[in-house]
């Protein structure tokens, strides 16, 4: 592992999902730093606020697809436009309850998307995510 502690940003409008993801990550990762926003727009704002301090940026974003205000796809389009220093190091994991091929195929067309996982998180998925992102 390149970093002693993982900094993960959860982007999901579902409180229960966020709560569970946080719990799971805390169980299986050593003292992770976890931030939570409720949609794509809040995630963009979050990243903007830290643009000048790359050390405060998350390593991994767990991105839901269906969200109000700005959904996962819209976030990806916005994020691609930002091109700020340090942003390129961020791993984006699509994290969805969808199991549709369409969504999976679509996610694969984004170069900035590292992988796509279906909910819920469990130990094996967390291990996969960390290995994909290191």
């Amino acid at each position: 592992m390149s970093k002693p502690a993982h900094h993960i940003l959860l982007v999901d409008d579902d409180d229960v999902t966020n709560f569970l993801s946080r719990e799971m990550l805390k169980i299986y990762l050593p003292s992770p730093q976890i931030d939570t926003v409720l949609n794509g727009q809040e995630a963009i704002d979050f990243l903007h606020a830290r643009a000048d301090q790359p050390e405060l940026l998350p390593d991994i974003i767990l991105l839901d697809i269906n969200m109000p205000v700005m959904d996962g796809w819209e976030f990806l389009a916005e994020f691609e436009k930002l091109k700020r220093p340090g942003f390129e190091k961020i791993h984006i994991i699509m994290f969805t309850s969808s199991v549709y091929y369409e969504d999976i195929d679509k996610a694969k067309t984004y170069a900035i998307v590292t992988d796509i996982f279906s909910k819920p998180l469990d130990e094996s998925k967390i291990n996969d995510i960390i290995s994909r992102c290191s």
């Binding site: 229960v16 569970l20 719990e23 799971m24 309850s97 969808s98 279906s118 909910k119 819920p120 469990d122």
Partner: peptide, 21 residues
Amino acid sequence: AYITSHNLRAPVANLISLLSL
């Protein structure tokens, strides 16, 4: 069907996680 299955699946997935914890 898509919306239904999706919207049903999310809370079910949560329930599974909650039960496991």
